[in-house]
Design a protein around this nucleic acid. Sequence first.
DNA 1: ATACTCCACTTAATCGTTTAACTGCTTAAT
DNA 2: ATTAAGCAGTTAAACGATTAAGTGGAGTAT
Lengths: 339, 339
Amino acid sequence: MATIKDVARRAQVSTATVSYVLNGTGVVSEATRARVLAAVAELGYQPNHSARALRTRSHTIGVVAPGIAGRLADPGTAEMLAGLSEAATAAGYCLLIAAPTATESEEELALRLVRSGRVDGLVIVDLRRDDERPSLLAEAGVPMIAIGAPTPGIACPVVGFDLRTGAEQASHHLIRLGHRRIALINFPSDLSISEPFYTGYLNALHAAGLRRDAALVIEAGSSETDGVAAMQELLTLRHPPTAVLAASDTLAFGAMHAIRDASLTVGVHISVVGCDDLPLAAHTYPSLTTLRAPRRELGTTLAHHLIGQIERRNAPAVTLLPLRLIIRHSTAAPFRVSG
Amino acid sequence: MATIKDVARRAQVSTATVSYVLNGTGVVSEATRARVLAAVAELGYQPNHSARALRTRSHTIGVVAPGIAGRLADPGTAEMLAGLSEAATAAGYCLLIAAPTATESEEELALRLVRSGRVDGLVIVDLRRDDERPSLLAEAGVPMIAIGAPTPGIACPVVGFDLRTGAEQASHHLIRLGHRRIALINFPSDLSISEPFYTGYLNALHAAGLRRDAALVIEAGSSETDGVAAMQELLTLRHPPTAVLAASDTLAFGAMHAIRDASLTVGVHISVVGCDDLPLAAHTYPSLTTLRAPRRELGTTLAHHLIGQIERRNAPAVTLLPLRLIIRHSTAAPFRVSG
DNA sequence: ATACTCCACTTAATCGTTTAACTGCTTAAT
DNA sequence: ATTAAGCAGTTAAACGATTAAGTGGAGTAT
């Protein structure tokens, strides 16, 4: 592989001049610049990344997700990664994906990436309510940005969706259809995003003068199976809900499944609303009313904010991207046995 | 950040000794080793990755997918990446994800990553029938491995699924149910994987003494919309098929959608088989009979083969992972109008 | 004529590792 | 007694860039 020395020799200049030409730093005459660029082209020269990184920055963004093995497989995460990768590459950065293993926890891994200078910044996936990652990484002085909701006590720039407004909108949609007993299948409360979603749901109930029923609020996991279990629990109630708001499409799919298994019909006996708008939401039967989350935009926003922090050391504010309610066939007016 | 010099000073040895201890190369007394390790722990020292990579290897695997932005969002790809990332990390490697941009094609990007020493090896996603990437990269002398099917004329180690046997099995399942007019919605023929899938389908027809009908074989894209279009085309035939084999679950979902839109019932009027077994295949209505592809295992196999190539310079053979037919409710005996 | 400023470069130090080659010292073999 | 081998280190030269400081010559102001 050609090095900067080979280029310098061929262009009859010093390596410094080559570097100045390539980086646009320093003053170089037009003739010399042309000779250098010709030599670069002829040799197919590419600056060695390690050597450059040793003097400057790694130009790499790290992504370490909690059990990324699982999260990576999540279609939402994938879409976000696509946006992140796209925006990062456009800005001259690469994405480094590392998975925690049996011998190295997520936190250790993140710290190792930072300490070894492998990454210039980190994306914290799924910020938790009392997450130790931001403070751990802050000690190392590395730029970072979290995905989730702003959380009291955690000083870390955050990008996420406006779940509060979204949940409010979705709940309002159900209320307007005539529902009075609306259940919430939420993420576990240790995730930062569970709180705003709950708040939005409550706000809508209050605005409509409805009383909150604790039995109708379920804290679930994030898999489809968790959605099934949550819905089954709701169906055993003496007064089951006539509508369900789920914090993700995946949970909603689980709920739909459980409803069908109980010989009830989604969109007739029980309305269901999800959140994400996964490609499949439009193609389940019935199709799912859901809050569309701009996951790709989430990725690009993360990249821009993080790179801004790395290069200009400016701390970005909290950014919440808006959700949009997509009304399909899983929601309808409540079912009445007679009349 | 602590460097090897800081550690050496604290342990009262030379930097060489520190390096020998940390890498397990060279002979060091037990006492000295202990002092060095203590110093490492006290300083929280992590070797600088760029400096190390400058002398040795980058310990990084690159993934550049064709329009990875799109592919990354594919649930199958995501699952594969999870496996890849897991196995790579366990072997001390990281995953670098880069996306081609408007100004830099996939091939240019891959070559840049290699020439700049940023990656030790590359995963070629979705090998095409006359793919130029392997020969381009072979010139650069970089280890690589492709995802897809072995293809004549392309000298590149490959890991993929045994689509021929899989398609054969799936077709056989439909034939055994009594179907005689079985359609194939295949990937575009420029993908390496389309050929074995087609071959498997043909083999099964031949084995059952059925004649192949060219009108029943459709070359589609890979999105759900492509599946819809393909199925609509099949439904306009004078003798539409009674069963459809799709090369992916996503195509199958599209086909199911088109069938429903034509007021027919999947699993009654027309049987559908997919390939992948995405999480949602079990939860569509009706649930989808499909070939389960071990995508996570695909990722780990890729990692092992590629790292073997990087570290031991041994060229792995072609590896095909077996598919397993999961029978659900989208397939049944052909519908008979009378009797 | 002298001093100063530009210009367009070059020189050489530096980043933090790895590793071949060397250095004393002790012990074993001839 | 001499040579050889082994041990446990150290020294210093890479690896391939970046960049502060230096250089020599032309042009300009005093």
